[in-house]
Simulated assay, not measured.
Amino acid sequence: MVTRRGTLGIMGAAGIAATPLGRLAAAPGAWRPLFNGRNFDGWTFFQDGIGNTDRDNVAAVEGGILHILGPRYRGPAAAPMGYLATAEAYGEYHLSLEYKWGERRFAPRELWKRDSGILYHVPAGREFLWPDCVEYQIMERSTGDAIPVNHRAIPGVSMGGLPAWPRNFPGQPYAPQIDAGGNLRQMIRAEGSFDTLDGWNTVELIASGDSAAHIVNGRIVNTLYGLQARDAAGAYAPITRGRILLQIECAEIRFRNIRIRSL
């Protein structure tokens, strides 16, 4: 959780004036569950090549925990990828959840690092495997990386491993994009690796206006500014809200304490 004192300390390290703090100075709303721990009310399911029905028990609820690709899974060894998505769109929020890796890995990634992610600012519409989004990467030793897909962002200026937050220095360029076969992507690396591979990790996302902060086990590791979405004609416009997705990516993972509050 980012406190006012922590925010001011990061701003001071980056040489940014402490006022005004804008919306982040106001008292945030109360935490409320985003996942109720009993069923999938408020969420939708998608799996590539299968659709919106969980045919193979990919996702299970066990004692309030969301378990992906656990022992109840009855599908093929090459588990198709997909996601669980909120039915609603969200903006101006602080998201928090905990995750823990399982041992099960599936083709074609049996030897890869375990991988999942939080996709945010996802528009409503047709469901497909790599939707337009900003990805908050959850991956062994890479948790907190940002991958905008047909979105783009200006990386926060880093001062000795401290990404500027909540305001960036003016005049910074957008990160370069690569063509990933039908979509444009940026790769914005996290500052440091603070995840554990064996226990529970807490990850947080602050989405404030067209900015975002990625927090891993209490440390801001990545900040993004000037978030924009690309339309069908290739033009960009600011984006401040969208659905929130949890990825299914060939690795067993548990999620718990999925909660959100307004800024």
Rank of each mutant, 00 (worst) to 15 (best):
W130A: 10
N150S: 05
L66D: 09
F40G: 08
E204L: 09
H121L: 14
S158G: 00
N201Y: 08
A212H: 02
A78Y: 04
Y99F: 15
V157P: 00
L66S: 12
M1S: 13
V216G: 09
P155F: 01
G49F: 10
E110W: 01
Q247L: 11
R167W: 12
F46E: 05
L246W: 13
I215R: 09
N201V: 05
E110M: 09
I258K: 05
I118A: 14
F45L: 08
R243S: 10
F128M: 10
S96M: 12
L24R: 06
L8C: 08
P163N: 03
A251P: 01
L224K: 04
N36H: 09
A232Y: 06
F35S: 12
G242H: 06
R4S: 11
P163V: 09
R109K: 14
G102F: 00
R114G: 02
L84I: 11
R105M: 12
R72Q: 14
A87E: 15
P163M: 05
G29M: 11
P176E: 07
Q186E: 13
P76G: 06
G125T: 06
G6N: 12
R109E: 14
A78Q: 14
D210F: 05
Q186R: 09
P155D: 00
F40K: 07
G6V: 03
I253R: 10
Y90A: 10
A18I: 02
V2E: 14
Q172W: 03
Q247R: 09
R241Y: 06
G226M: 03
I138E: 07
M187S: 10
L246D: 14
Y93G: 00
A87Y: 07
G82V: 06
P155W: 02
R141N: 11
K100I: 00
E127P: 04
I258P: 10
Q247N: 13
F194C: 01
G82Q: 06
R254A: 14
Q177R: 15
W43R: 05
I138D: 11
